[in-house]
Design a protein around this nucleic acid. Structure first.
Lengths: 257, 257
DNA sequence: GTTGGACCCTCCCACTGTGGGAGCCTCCAT
DNA sequence: ATGGAGGCTCCCACAGTGGGAGGGTCCAAC
């Protein structure tokens, strides 16, 4: 009897999976052998389990995580769509990383000119939102749009404010100088004083490259940076190619005593 | 004395790294605190170590592996180039995976029509090479080119032969029917008999999608596939858009007894 | 029937980089 | 002196796979 049963090694060769993998999938409940000998623990597979095994193998070959494969096997049709979305986001992040690395390789490691400037206090209208680390770009853009819609014709440049401690949730703010309160925004005053400042030229998502250099400059000199990182968007992103976007990065230094 | 020294927590905040990370980098020798109290084990950093810490933080933020960062810190200027190359290859692989997933999502899981055909034995000229799993595409193309150069005007279609067991090193072969020996190639005979066959339409790198379906069909029926997977390149890749490339995938079934 | 070799079992460790937590010690300001 | 913040080491977890130890099982050849 049981003639069609395959022990794990034969089944593994048939499906082009390793024995280790099959045991692991069994343990996870992804693909349970049709029969397990209660005495010896030997796993026996039916040949028609090959299709499921091959599906696992196929999805693994394109990096679908095992838990998602499990959901697919249980008929969750939305699982692959979720994987797709995650992969797309991951791919975009990796492309940005790759571009950043290319920039580092072509320009060398940044030692941009850091200057110390004295800033006046500025009365501003502010729009805030909470973002996660990987959604800063989107959320900031949204804040800029909201602020522009509220203020209409800004007197000064857009200023982004980003907390220095990289908590999983961080509050980003976008401010613009204003002489009176603007509905739909919060009034605030950006403190004046001494700031370390550096100019970033390039896409917004590469700001960290220059910001790190600024923070390194500050830390190296034993200053303790105070308050959020300030980004002053000098270029108009609608009319400037990404490679030429100019942004001033500023960080407040503690007052000399 | 030692006034500039920072304990690990303060230094971590300054560099926007976690204490855990700093201890880990110390352990790996990436960033050793300037002074470690021999009694208490307390780590103390100098402010000017912030630059190195920030460099680590910057490179980590673009997914440079820690060992590569270590090489960068020791002045190995080629390290980043190596990382770049690996990242590029990884990115390309992920893009292919993503495209394959998109295809699965748009077309549903493959259940292509598998047919059983009787093939005659064919006398062929063969060119072989050894490839790793991720270089199959390149190596196969190279074999095709070498074979074309040797044969000149082939009588039949190009045929790729790929072993079924996915060892880390696998020998790929490209064959074409011929009536006499061709210098620069090995003569061989492709065995005739019963083959399970399926037609793949789409880019070559998505062949695994269809091949898995073929192997699933074979395994499901309890057949034991014999010999290599045969790919018959029906379309001319130079003149056909990738989405329309037609390839026959065939696998020899054991002789019925 | 026995023997040997291929095959199978479970359990542990490794990789990467980070976080969480336990249990304990140290620093510093009140 | 005391309490709380902050430091220390050591262990575990994550995802998925491979390697290996130590031991049991299957089957064909003798």
């Amino acid at each position: 009897m049981n003639e069609g049963y395959l022990p794990i090694g034969r089944f593994a060769r048939l499906c082009r999976l390793s024995v280790k993998q099959l045991r692991h999938y069994d343990e996870l409940g992804l693909l349970t052998p049709d029969h397990v000998d209660p005495d010896t623990g030997y796993r026996y597979y039916r040949p028609d389990q090959a299709r499921a095994a091959m599906l696992i193998s196929l999805l693994r070959s394109i990096d679908v995580p095992l838990p998602s494969i499990g959901r697919v096997l249980s008929g969750d049709t939305a699982a692959l769509g979720d994987v797709r979305d995650r992969m797309e986001a991951d791919l975009a992040r990796r492309e940005r990383n790759f571009a950043a690395l290319e920039r580092i390789l072509s320009e060398g490691l940044q030692r941009p000119e850091v200057t110390v400037v004295r800033e006046p206090a500025r009365r501003v209208a502010v729009v805030r939102d909470v973002a996660t680390l990987d959604r800063i770009g989107v959320v900031t853009s949204a804040c800029v749009a909201r602020l522009l819609a509220a203020v209409g014709d800004p007197r000064g440049l857009m200023i982004g404010l980003f907390p220095l401690d990289l908590a999983p949730e961080l509050t980003v703010a976008v401010a613009v100088e204003t002489s009176e309160d603007v509905p739909g925004t919060s009034p605030d005053v950006l403190p004046g004083g001494l700031y370390a400042s550096v100019t970033h030229v390039g896409p917004y998502h590469q700001i960290p490259l220059t910001a790190h250099a600024l923070l390194a400059w500050v830390g190296e000199r034993g200053h303790t940076p105070e308050g959020p990182l300030r980004e002053v968007y000098v270029s108009n992103p609608a009319t400037t190619p990404q490679d030429r976007l100019v942004t001033h990065l500023m960080i407040k230094l503690e007052d000399p005593e």
